[in-house]
């Protein structure tokens, strides 16, 4: 994930990173609009620092961290909305193969922390260390969260009717 601050400037970095971060946030949020909005805000915050003294040493890691925190705060305001079944339905505008739809639904039913870990790892392709960085937890905690999340995901895929306990 590391991109050095001198590697190609903001535009090149933004083009490279955009799809991955948006996909992570969209699947994490279960909401395309919210995911895109949070991604844009996180990229804008990075851009704001890009030419200044507080430019992040690792812009990707920094932006993931900011995005995850932004999403958490939005979630806290929209938690009730996200409990409704609507989040279990992938957007009609995006064509996904059936197994991916099944995964989308299973991920949406995971507890928040597990969902974050799973999406960062398997949609974002982040390493455990990078997942820990993005979630603001220790590496060991991220590893344990991922291990538990894999089990919860397996349960969710086996029985899509049941909620997955945190």
């Amino acid at each position: 994930m590391t991109v050095t601050a001198d590697d190609g400037g903001f535009a090149a970095w933004y083009q490279r990173e955009h799809r991955r971060l948006v996909n992570v946030l969209v699947v994490m949020a279960g909401d395309v609009d919210l995911g895109v909005e949070v991604a844009d805000e996180a990229f804008a915050r990075c851009l704001q620092r890009w030419d200044g003294p507080r430019r992040p040493l690792d812009p990707s890691a920094w932006t993931y961290r900011v995005a995850v925190n932004l999403l958490r705060r939005r979630w806290s305001r929209r938690r009730r909305e996200h409990r409704v079944a609507a989040v279990l339905v992938p957007p009609e505008a995006v064509e996904l193969p059936a197994p991916a739809v099944e995964l989308w639904r299973a991920v949406a039913r995971l507890p928040e922390r597990a969902r974050m870990a799973v999406v960062l790892r398997y949609v974002g392709g982040l390493t455990e260390r990078e997942v820990a960085q993005a979630m603001g937890v220790a590496v060991g905690t991220a590893a344990a969260t991922l291990a538990k999340a894999r089990r919860q995901l397996a349960t969710a895929l086996e029985d899509p009717r049941e909620a997955v306990d945190g």
């Binding site: 996909n23 395309v32 398997y122």
Partner: peptide, 15 residues
């Protein structure tokens, strides 16, 4: 296996 299964979601274009 999970990385492979999630590939369509990772490669999708949402925006």
């Amino acid at each position: 296996d999970l990385l492979d299964r999630f590939r369509p979601l990772a490669d999708a274009t949402f925006a």
